[in-house]
């Protein structure tokens, strides 16, 4: 495992920690899209179905369990916690699941390497992860006074994707049989989706102002 991959995973983990701190610490999920969180849970479930059949390393297995556990916890808090659910911006979080899930499913069925349930669902998870952040970005545009934790959460998630691209470039040049066009294309698309957010994040940081995304 190279340093980019490890740093990427740590950013991903940190983004989840920041989100959980926000939700449980200040008992608020204001500005957080439940739709994005549920899509991530679906991504993890469909991707990690091989958790007990395809052992790679203890690190991978533990991380998969952590991602499954924490994303379930986040969805649970936002949906069912007596206090936290009251802070969810349901009326603003209007992105349609089907708009993201249906194309991902069609593409997975059309491009899967082999047609086994596990492989098609894995391919589906790659497509879905690429676009799962969209409800969150739309909700951010609609949120006035985005708090620091929410801005940092999205920033850390975007950093994780950027670092994975550096990891792929590194592996491309150091490993002979590392050719993953599907994963790469989706990864690049996913990172491009963050570009607009990054622009305004750095702008607000540079000017020492609160983050605001123009509608």
């Amino acid at each position: 495992m190279n340093v980019f991959r490890l740093a990427g995973d740590m950013m991903h983990l940190l983004s989840i920690v920041v989100l959980l701190l926000k939700i449980t610490g200040i008992k608020s999920c204001r500005g957080i899209s439940l739709k994005t969180q549920e899509l991530y849970l679906l991504v993890f479930i469909t991707r990690y179905l091989d958790i007990f059949t395809n052992f790679v390393s203890l690190y991978n297995t533990v991380m998969k369990l952590v991602f499954l556990g924490t994303s379930s916890a986040i969805v649970y808090y936002m949906r069912y916690d007596r206090i936290i659910k009251l802070t969810y911006d349901k009326e603003q979080d209007t992105f349609k699941y089907l708009l993201l899930v249906a194309p991902s499913a069609v593409l997975a069925l059309a491009t899967s390497h082999v047609y086994t349930v596990l492989e098609v669902l894995w391919t589906f998870s790659i497509y879905l992860e690429a676009v799962a952040i969209m409800p969150q970005l739309v909700l951010l545009q609609r949120t006035q006074n985005i708090d620091n934790l929410t801005g940092n959460y999205v920033f850390l998630l975007g950093s994780y994707r950027g670092l994975y691209i550096l990891n792929w470039i590194y592996r491309f040049f150091t490993e002979k049989h590392y050719r993953q066009w599907l994963v790469w294309t989706c990864g690049v698309v996913q990172t491009i989706i963050y570009c607009d957010f990054f622009y305004y994040y750095f702008l607000s940081w540079q000017n020492n102002e609160k983050l605001a995304l123009p509608a």
Partner: peptide, 10 residues
Amino acid sequence: APAAALKDEL
């Protein structure tokens, strides 16, 4: 169809 991907990443 694309080549089988290495599933050693998260």
